[in-house]
Design a protein around this nucleic acid. Structure first.
Lengths: 93, 93, 93, 93
DNA sequence: TCCCTGATAGCGTCGC
DNA sequence: GCGACGCTATCAGGGA
């Protein structure tokens, strides 16, 4: 039974951490809204702004995908890419 | 009561159309799987293939977004774009 | 080097087949959307409709599973099933 | 023309603030994912956890709504509510 | 106020 | 069999 108690506490802790993080996330989402509202107040068209944000994001993603596919090719060809091994070492694989 | 009967038949018809279409959709999804499987059988790396397909799609989307944002600017500036009214006429809007 | 050229063409063919199929899939997905939109225009609640579709699908899956189990038993008993009336008969509904 | 330059800078500033905030938002979303992953590693069922989180959120929303209604009555009766102990006290749970 | 679009979360699939 | 990724469906916010 003690185990259940422990598990319960652990679960509770996880849940609370998540809820705390979700609060933060929501706070930020609200901040974003505020910025759009402020921009609108300054005469900008939020629709256009959203599109700009979206397209810039796409650009970044595109670049990321390009890199990803390059890596993929390299591996497919049995060539590990030296350099850019940042953050994790795949040599072990 | 007759109304309910009519509505029921109408609803039934809609549901069946949807289910039929979903069957077709699934059939195509299966076809896609088959193609990947076949390619794999020919020695291709499906992961790479999926990436290629994805990136090509992104390219197309990017172009579409570019056009969309252009349109948006044009409208924001009060300039309807003459031409490119292909497929549907926005004049009515 | 010729090999690479061949592989390249083959790959290209696979990619194009996939892209063609994905287009078709998307077209059908759009058709489905249209049907929902039309139903909505006729006063139906699409949320409810989606639930109906989902439930009916589950039912079919359950039936399929039941049949699968039956088949399993039949084979375990050394009895091949003679046809099992393909696709099931909806007349009864 | 100077105006356009100013507007441009202003727009740029808004866009960058938004992008910065979206990065933060994403970072938090990733943190949440990590917590779920960690919980999973401790043997918890994340699907159940997500349900718990969702339900507790609903509960909070309901409580908030109840309070809102209460406030409404209070105001209708010309009685301002004195503070209403902001944010609710979780000690009782 | 309603509709539509975009964002998010859950599900299923694929690969390891 | 497990874990990760992509896709789909649902929900919420913004605009008309």
């Amino acid at each position: 039974m003690a185990d259940h108690g422990i598990a319960r506490d652990q679960l509770r802790a996880f849940i609370e951490r998540i809820e705390r993080l979700e609060e933060e996330k929501k706070a930020i989402a609200d901040d974003i809204k505020e910025v759009y509202a402020e921009a609108k107040g300054s005469g900008f068209d939020t629709k256009v702004m959203r599109q700009i944000v979206r397209i810039r994001k796409q650009d970044r993603n595109e670049r990321a995908e390009q890199e990803a596919i390059l890596d993929l090719y390299m591996h497919a060809l049995g060539m590990a890419d030296a350099g850019s091994q940042s953050e994790y070492d795949e040599a072990a694989e």
